[in-house]
Amino acid sequence: MSSDDVAFSEILPVGCPPNDAIKSDGRTAFRLIKMNPPIPEDFFSHSKLAKRKPPDVPLCNWMSCSLNADKVPLINFRKMPRFKDFKFIAVLRLEKESGMIKEKNGHIDFWMYASFNPIDACEIESADP
């Protein structure tokens, strides 16, 4: 629970999101997904998918949904072994009511509010160049 007493989609540990995370501000962000139409699990964090966290990965990052500030890098991520089957990109419109974000070098950690439904807030595009 943040200082604003807004419920996140998962119970986050103390200090998560970090102090330098901000409310999303009407920006667009992008996420690779496998299928069209998307399902809620496409936007779950690893934690919410009940995947065990490797020891050296911070828990707060493990509990975020990875987004990207630009579409082009995601198209290139599909050249990585784990993302070859991700054929679509969800284009998300993130408002203040969507959640908290922290961007670094194009990667965005997104901690969404419980009230936010990413499927309603996205459009789906092909991830082909």
Binding site: P73, N76, F77, K79, M80, P81, K84, K104, N105, H107
Partner: peptide, 17 residues
């Protein structure tokens, strides 16, 4: 080939400097 990256992934796509 399931283990290999495909051609065309460059360092400009890294998320860390």
């Amino acid at each position: 080939k399931d283990y290999w990256p495909e051609k065309g992934f460059f360092s400009s796509n890294h998320s860390s400097v």
